[in-house]
Design a binder for these strands. Structure first.
Lengths: 161, 161
DNA sequence: TCCGGGCTTCATTTTTTTTTGAAATAAATC
DNA sequence: GATTTATTTCAAAAAAAAATGAAGCCCGGA
């Protein structure tokens, strides 16, 4: 059974959320996570997790997991306001920071992470296997490029560019 | 039933393929596709589709679909050599081209694609809904930045940088 | 300490994605 | 034109991923 029908979202919010669903998909991030981010992006004020799950008609568990993932990406921030009983969430609104964190958390580990294991592989290949050595070498060059390019990448989205 | 067991791949090739599986995953691309690319990356010469599917122990259908996807990304090239009976495939070995095509095919459509629909949304919002207008405006700024940044991005991986 | 709202966790269920297998297609050879 | 061999397509199966729901947890207030 699906969750209880909730008040429909404003049309502009639906459209913005759809936009984020598309972008998130490109990076292999789940749809419900995109919806949560979109909701917070559209919100006027930080929201409780419960408000989010009610608004989107998703379970508390789903909201919890999605928010955890978004926090790992620093795409949402958890705030515990002084007077408040519970903590609430707001969306990161700076593309630059979004991209920068995405690079740090998702890209860099995969692209430049296995550096030593690649080096170990290269060391272990017999000198006469020139083809394998070439290919592994190329891979190392790629990593090298990634390592120097990634720090520059988020500057492309910086304030003054 | 699983496919017939095939001769095990050289250890270095296994490792290189694992590497690509990780990278592909980051971009939401399927694992078998990563394995096909990895196989071609390691190959000394272009391969027939049948050689690929046999080597990896996957079905012909899976190989066909994976190769189609990789061709869309320009990550592999189909070659029909003059003398040869059938066409064969080779991996794109230039990171720069790989990234450039990935941006063109996957990123750009999503990031800068909905420009006019966003503009239409902005036009349709009542002037008094300043919050919604602000948020949509921000989204348009993001698209703007993406549109200018993407063409520069692949230069970061260029030959001399 | 107990209560209660909200949050987390995780086994189960649901949904989506990927792979298979088989039939249809194509292309070169005889 | 028939035959052989490789490829494409697509419905069905299998696998993987995501969402649910319920049990337990945490934390502030009574």
């Amino acid at each position: 059974m699906t969750h209880p029908a909730t008040a429909p979202l404003p049309e502009w919010e639906e459209e913005v959320i759809s936009h984020f669903i598309g972008v998130f998909e490109t990076f292999g991030l789940p749809k419900s996570t995109a919806r949560i981010y979109g909701t917070l992006y559209c919100a006027e004020a930080p929201m409780l997790q419960e408000e989010i799950s009610t608004r989107l008609g998703i379970s508390a568990g789903s909201a919890s997991q999605g928010l955890k993932l978004l926090q790992n990406l620093s795409a949402v921030h958890r705030i515990t306001p002084p007077g408040q009983r519970h903590s609430c969430y707001s969306a990161e609104l700076s593309v630059r920071r979004l991209i920068s964190h995405f690079i740090d958390v998702q890209l860099r580990p995969k692209l430049t992470g296995g550096r030593q294991s690649l080096q170990a592989l290269a060391d272990r290949l017999p000198p006469e296997n020139t083809h394998a050595r070439n290919r592994v070498q190329t891979l190392q060059t790629w990593q090298q490029k990634a390592a120097t390019a990634l720090p520059l990448a988020d500057r492309l989205f910086g304030p003054k560019s």
